[in-house]
Amino acid sequence: MAKFIVFEGPDRGGKSTQANLLRKYLEAAGYNVLQTREPGGTPVSEGIRKILLDPENSVSPRAELLLYEASRAQHTEEKILPALQEDKIVICERYTMSTCAYQGYGRGFDMDLINTVNNIATHGLQPDLTFVFLMSDKYFTERGEYLFSDRLELEGNEFREKMRQGYKELVKITPNAVLIDADNTVEEIHAKVLGHLKEFNIL
Rank of each mutant, 00 (worst) to 15 (best):
92 C>L: 08
60 S>P: 13
75 H>T: 01
194 L>E: 05
111 M>C: 03
28 A>N: 15
7 F>I: 00
134 L>G: 03
118 N>I: 10
24 K>N: 13
176 N>K: 11
60 S>T: 15
191 A>C: 14
75 H>D: 04
202 I>E: 02
93 E>R: 05
88 K>H: 14
45 S>P: 07
131 F>K: 02
63 A>K: 02
61 P>L: 08
194 L>V: 08
199 E>R: 09
19 A>Q: 05
83 A>D: 05
78 E>P: 07
127 P>G: 04
50 K>E: 12
18 Q>N: 12
118 N>Q: 10
168 K>Y: 15
21 L>G: 06
167 Y>R: 10
196 H>L: 12
88 K>D: 02
119 N>T: 13
19 A>T: 14
140 F>L: 07
118 N>K: 10
154 L>N: 04
174 T>I: 03
135 M>H: 10
162 K>R: 13
120 I>P: 04
187 E>G: 11
47 G>I: 06
197 L>E: 00
56 E>T: 08
51 I>K: 01
201 N>D: 14
175 P>N: 05
199 E>I: 06
89 I>W: 06
1 M>I: 03
42 T>Y: 05
77 E>T: 13
48 I>Y: 06
87 D>Q: 15
80 I>N: 00
185 T>I: 08
111 M>R: 14
98 S>F: 00
176 N>S: 04
148 F>Q: 14
191 A>T: 13
62 R>S: 14
149 S>L: 15
34 L>A: 03
117 V>I: 15
113 L>G: 11
86 E>P: 06
70 A>K: 10
70 A>V: 09
18 Q>P: 03
200 F>C: 02
53 L>F: 00
126 Q>I: 01
44 V>P: 04
13 G>R: 00
68 Y>L: 15
100 C>M: 14
37 R>M: 05
93 E>L: 01
192 K>L: 10
115 N>S: 05
5 I>W: 01
156 G>S: 09
193 V>A: 08
54 D>F: 06
194 L>D: 01
177 A>Y: 06
54 D>K: 02
29 A>Y: 13
92 C>D: 10
96 T>H: 07
186 V>M: 14
17 T>W: 06
177 A>M: 04
160 R>P: 02
173 I>W: 02
